[in-house]
Design a binder for these strands. Structure first.
Lengths: 337, 337
DNA sequence: TTGAAAGCGCTAACAA
DNA sequence: TTGTTAGCGCTTTCAA
């Protein structure tokens, strides 16, 4: 195997200095058009591949944005990452992804690991972190953005929404439609803090209207998906057979709950109404369609990307923490009209 | 803002040479336990963060594995990436993810971009690439693994399965159960080559049994998801109302097709049977449950990760191209019993 | 617009 | 087991 081809080789072939090659490869640098063409031709012929590691080291810019999400396998988070990515790649930034499996300890480990790559910004999901993670983030001198939540004590910037308020809105809707025996199907307290915030909104809405808030079914640790939704519905029907409406922590669990009802011959919404959260595709295509809340994951991603670009541009000037609130929308469909 | 803390600072604080700090941070290096403890303590107190970029440059190891998938928002690919990631992180390797949006041109662009980060291995989805992409890959001196397919002309290593054979098995099953008027709902030829391979398997099975193979509905470019499945079923019922079974390119489109039938009061499978591909969660929870093929995405990911680790270990010794075939399993459920 | 010199922070290679 | 020296490939900085 031959020696690696470097800028020096390209420079020699093109009859210029390495520095000129460097400039030719930087799109916004000042280079004579002919010179650049000559350099690019030489590079192409030699099969030169630009070495980011060396560039990073010298310029102290990694071109990475670290993004940490609970799970890869979740359409909502995938949408956010996709939208963010589309904005960032316009500016030469690449996403370095990590997923926590809904564990703050794993999140801390990921932060430690990702920091070694010198990300230019760090995007987190939610506002719950270990003490050490908060320390690490405080010492990092790059923008930190928390998303998918509206934390009480933000680390720095936020692009998110209140899961509590959003869920409260949905439950208020159910109450306004005359439902009084309403249950919540969700996960346990560990891990999914967004789920807990939704539960808080549920309890708040019921409390305001003086309704019984004891119909709470826990499906165990996150992720709470179809299987867990189906099992939770089984528990619910066993323990509280007279329930009129079941509010689920996500559309996936709502769908699981819905199919469990269908297996038992229960009609939705006539026998029991069901609502979800997240406006996943399935909520629009299930039969019946599922009432849900659209938190606009794509908008979260796009705005997060734009915020990062803005913050990196404003360079050394410290910018006050930005709080961008997203306003989720109630989507009333057949399962809970 | 103060100067960045480097190994030199840690070395001074711990009273050792920078090289000793370097060794202390490398888990498999030979360092006295006391020395290491002292170094780590100093590092912790100073808030030292290891700089991967510098390490990469000098050691010529990036710690990255590039992985390119068609879409982030797809449970099958997410499962593969997740499983691969679990194996690789055990060996200090991090995944650098790119998604093509089902475009080979975008794949080429991604390969160019990812190569700059000096990945230690490159994982691709499928066996269709642009000419230039093949060149780039041929010049890269790292292991290349194609997955989710069994390419005719593999670039190098493969961990995958035959989409054609798998689909043929499913259609053979339908034929053996007496279905003769069978349709295929998929995407168009551009982009999703795995979809095209499945169509080929469909045609092959029908051809072998001398059955009419004209019931082909194209739902347009990938991704073919729930919406496209529903629209395709509309077309199908309009054009070929006497169809007995609809085979869909994926479970998501199968679900869309199923719900379209339900909206129209058609019974599945009595009036029309439906089958999918991929063993997504939804196939097990839909009502009726959906007959599908499990391609074991997790196994693909795990084996790909293991292969990479093995290849990187065997260092300079060139290893013959490895072809690891996965054998998908037919999962017979209610929608096409 | 282009070039020369220096050095980013780490580790390979060698020495002790 | 630990230390010294040099240099990975690029870009900053300054000069022409």
């Amino acid at each position: 195997m031959s020696r690696k081809i470097t800028m020096k080789d390209v420079a020699k072939a093109a009859g210029v200095a390495p520095m000129t090659v460097s400039r030719a490869f930087k799109s916004d640098a000042v280079v004579n058009a002919d010179t650049r063409a000559r350099v690019m031709k030489a590079a192409e012929e030699l099969g030169y591949v630009f070495d980011s590691a060396a560039s990073n080291l010298r310029s102290r810019k990694s071109g990475f944005v670290a993004a940490i999400i609970p799970s890869l396998n979740n359409a909502n988070f995938a949408d956010t990452i996709g939208a963010m990515s589309r904005v960032l790649e316009q500016h030469g930034l690449q996403i370095l992804l990590g997923y926590t499996g809904y564990s703050v300890d794993e999140e801390q480990r990921l932060i430690e690991q990702l920091l070694r790559r010198s990300p230019e910004a760090i995007v987190l999901t939610g506002g719950h972190h270990t003490e050490r993670a908060r320390e690490l983030l405080a010492n990092a001198t790059v923008p930190i953005i928390e998303t998918w939540d509206l934390p009480d004590k933000p680390v720095q910037h936020v692009v998110g929404f209140s899961n509590t308020t959003a869920m409260k809105g949905l439950v208020d809707h159910l109450i306004s439609r005359g439902f009084t025996k309403i249950a919540f199907l969700g996960g346990d307290a560990a891990g999914d803090h967004r789920g807990q915030a939704r539960l808080a909104g549920f309890l708040e809405a019921l409390g305001r209207h003086g309704l019984d808030a004891s119909r709470l079914i826990s499906a165990g640790p996150a992720p709470v998906a179809m299987r867990e939704g189906a099992l939770a519905m089984q528990s619910l029907l066993a323990r509280f057979p007279d329930t009129e409406a079941a509010v689920c922590v996500s559309d996936l669990s709502a769908f699981g709950a819905l199919t469990e009802c269908q297996r038992r011959g229960l009609r939705v919404p006539e026998d029991i109404a069901i609502a979800g959260f997240g406006a996943y595709d399935i909520s629009a295509f299930a039969h019946p369609t599922i009432t849900t809340i659209d938190a606009f994951p794509t908008e979260i991603g796009r705005k997060t990307g734009q915020l990062i670009v803005k913050l990196l541009r404003s360079d050394e000037v410290p910018v006050d923490p930005q709080i961008e609130e997203i306003f989720p929308q109630l989507v009333v469909r057949q399962s809970a009209p």
